[in-house]
Lab assay of single mutants.
Amino acid sequence: MTYKLILNGKTLKGETTTEAVDAATAEKVFKQYANDNGSDGEWTYDDATKTFTVTE
Score class of each variant (00 low, 15 high):
M1D: 13
M1C: 14
M1S: 13
M1F: 14
M1V: 13
M1K: 12
T2I: 14
T2M: 11
T2R: 06
Y3W: 05
Y3E: 03
Y3S: 02
Y3L: 02
K4W: 10
K4F: 12
K4E: 03
K4Y: 14
L5V: 04
L5D: 03
I6T: 04
I6V: 11
I6H: 05
I6L: 06
L7Q: 03
L7K: 00
N8W: 13
N8P: 05
G9Q: 05
G9K: 06
G9D: 05
G9I: 10
K10D: 08
K10N: 12
K10H: 12
K10W: 10
K10V: 14
K10Q: 11
T11S: 11
T11K: 08
T11I: 11
T11A: 09
T11V: 13
T11N: 13
L12A: 12
L12Y: 15
L12F: 15
L12C: 15
L12M: 13
L12E: 08
K13S: 10
K13C: 14
G14L: 15
G14N: 10
G14C: 15
G14A: 14
G14Q: 13
E15S: 10
E15G: 08
E15M: 10
T16A: 11
T16I: 15
T16W: 15
T16R: 11
T17M: 09
T17F: 13
T17A: 06
T17I: 08
T17Q: 09
T17V: 08
T17C: 10
T18Q: 04
T18M: 09
T18H: 06
T18C: 15
E19P: 04
E19Y: 15
E19D: 09
E19V: 15
E19G: 04
E19I: 15
E19L: 14
A20D: 02
A20T: 04
A20R: 02
A20Q: 07
V21Y: 11
V21G: 08
D22K: 01
D22V: 02
D22S: 06
D22R: 01
D22C: 04
D22M: 02
D22Q: 02
D22G: 02
A23S: 09
A23K: 13
A23G: 04
A24I: 10
A24W: 09
A24N: 07
A24M: 10
T25F: 07
T25A: 14
T25G: 07
T25S: 13
T25N: 07
A26V: 01
A26F: 00
A26R: 00
A26N: 01
E27A: 09
E27I: 07
E27W: 15
E27P: 00
E27D: 03
K28W: 08
K28V: 09
K28M: 11
K28N: 07
K28Y: 08
V29Q: 06
V29C: 07
V29M: 08
V29R: 07
V29I: 14
V29S: 05
F30K: 01
F30R: 00
K31N: 04
K31R: 15
K31D: 01
K31Q: 08
K31C: 06
Q32I: 09
Q32D: 07
Q32L: 09
Q32V: 08
Q32N: 07
Y33R: 03
Y33C: 04
A34D: 01
A34M: 11
A34C: 14
A34N: 03
N35F: 15
D36E: 13
D36A: 12
D36M: 12
D36K: 09
D36C: 09
D36I: 11
D36L: 12
N37P: 04
N37Q: 14
N37S: 10
N37F: 15
N37R: 14
N37G: 06
N37C: 10
N37A: 13
N37D: 04
N37W: 14
G38M: 12
G38Q: 07
G38C: 10
G38R: 07
S39I: 15
S39F: 15
S39P: 07
S39K: 09
S39V: 15
S39G: 11
D40V: 14
D40E: 12
D40C: 13
D40N: 13
D40I: 14
D40R: 12
D40Y: 15
G41E: 03
G41V: 05
G41Q: 06
G41R: 04
G41K: 04
G41F: 11
E42W: 11
E42N: 09
E42T: 12
E42R: 08
E42A: 10
E42S: 10
E42D: 12
W43G: 00
W43P: 00
W43S: 01
W43F: 04
W43T: 00
W43M: 05
T44V: 10
T44R: 08
T44K: 08
T44D: 08
T44W: 08
T44C: 10
T44M: 07
Y45S: 00
Y45V: 01
Y45W: 03
Y45N: 00
Y45R: 00
Y45E: 01
Y45A: 01
D46Q: 04
D46V: 04
D46M: 03
D46Y: 04
D46W: 03
D46S: 05
D46I: 03
D47F: 07
D47M: 07
A48P: 06
A48H: 09
T49I: 05
T49F: 04
T49H: 06
T49E: 05
T49V: 04
T49Q: 05
T49R: 05
T49S: 09
K50V: 02
K50R: 14
K50C: 06
T51Y: 01
T51H: 01
T51Q: 03
T51A: 03
T51W: 01
T51S: 04
F52E: 01
F52D: 00
F52A: 00
F52K: 00
F52I: 00
F52M: 00
T53W: 09
T53K: 04
T53L: 06
T53A: 04
T53C: 06
V54F: 12
V54Y: 11
T55R: 06
T55Q: 07
T55G: 05
T55N: 09
E56T: 09
E56S: 10
E56Y: 13
E56W: 13
E56I: 12
E56P: 10
E56M: 10
